[in-house]
Amino acid sequence: MPRPEPQTPILGTRTLLLVWVSLLALTALTVAVAKGRLLADYGVLAALGIASIKAGLVLAFFMQLKYESRLLQGLAFFAVVTLLTILAGTFADVWYR
């Protein structure tokens, strides 16, 4: 049924630039952490963690997920959970052989 939908807001240039600068800063950070071996064994975890923050920023602001309906946010979460689930199922095998 064609319901009139509230539009997502038009993001201001300042917001977008702020997000971009954060993304670049996080990129620099992740390179520094890796090169400097700052976190030794936790390197991969840190790298993936920083990557997830970057991905989150792109999803929330560039893709406007922050401003979308609860339904869409829920479906996106569900898709990610699905991926994590198949990783978990595979690792239930691989880790315990």
Partner: peptide
């Protein structure tokens, strides 16, 4: 149904943990 795929692989050499879970 998305979570049970390993039951096609019980004799493949999968871990016991996985087999019990699936």
């Amino acid at each position: 149904g998305y979570l049970v795929w390993g039951h096609h692989m019980f004799t493949s050499g999968m871990s016991d943990t996985a087999r019990i879970g699936f």
